[in-house]
């Protein structure tokens, strides 16, 4: 997929680019409204990651421009402003999702994947990853054509892992994804371990590959091969 990252903070821009580029995605980035407009006028993108607070104006201008030009890009707002008004305004004028800083790159990736899936209309279809196939509408999973019963958390976890396949995901990022940041899991990550263990067992029992790896106690990785 082709991504445009509009973000004025260089460090963040680079990290997002690094994280997304691995899977053969094309990432372009720019640091202000002006250059973003220039790029949007010339090229097409699948998804735009848009910071609202830009040095030469606010990102809503981009959304309005896209809407006026009837352009088809998906937009995910990444903003430091956790305000409901901003969120509603953004979603109202065409953003597909809203992510508040700070966020984990894995979370951003999962959101991008979900947004693109929705855009393609494939969110109602079947997501196939090797021997695992997930019916996104019915929320059921089969491994080698054997149905496995997952709890809600295990199901969400599986989707999250597949979106970030081949990446090490920190326990912190997983916890935030599964429980939200308001639930304040602190350093109690035993629950995550329990869920991972169960998910892994269920896939293995259906003769699936052992995809889940623990990485030095810091997180987990869903190997892509």
């Amino acid at each position: 997929m082709k991504l445009l990252i509009i973000e004025d903070e260089q460090g963040l821009r680079e990290n997002i680019t690094t994280y997304f580029s691995d899977d053969g995605n094309i990432c372009e980035s720019c640091r202000d409204l002006n250059s973003a407009m220039g790029k949007l006028a010339m090229y097409e993108y699948d998804c735009i990651l848009l910071d609202i607070g830009l040095p030469d104006g606010d990102g809503f201008t981009i959304l309005e421009y896209l809407r006026a030009k009837m352009k088809n890009e998906s937009v995910i707002i990444i903003s430091a402003r956790n305000s409901l008004d901003d969120k509603l305004r953004g979603l109202d004028i065409g953003a597909d999702d809203y992510l508040t800083k700070p966020f984990h790159l894995a979370e951003l990736k999962a959101r991008v994947v979900a947004v693109l899936r929705r855009k393609m209309g494939s969110n109602k279809g079947l997501l196939v990853f090797n021997e695992i196939s997930i019916d996104l509408q019915g929320r059921t999973v089969t491994v080698n054509d054997t149905a496995i019963i997952l709890t809600r958390k295990e199901y969400e976890m599986l989707l999250y892992f597949i979106a970030n396949k081949g990446k090490v995901i920190s326990k912190m990022a997983l916890a935030e994804h599964l429980w939200g940041d308001e639930m304040d899991m602190h350093s109690h990550f035993d629950f995550i371990y329990t869920h991972i263990k169960n998910l892994r067992k269920k896939i293995l029992e259906a003769n699936g590959k052992d995809y889940l790896q623990s990485v030095y106690g810091i997180g987990y990785k869903f190997i892509s091969a």
Binding site: G11, I16, K101, F103
Partner: peptide, 30 residues
Amino acid sequence: MLTPLAVITSKLDILIQNETLPLEIYEQIE
């Protein structure tokens, strides 16, 4: 403060992708 925090978080997210770091470093990162 949120933007620098986002930078730190994403740097860490990138850092742990490098699986050749010694174990102590992971403890620090955690």
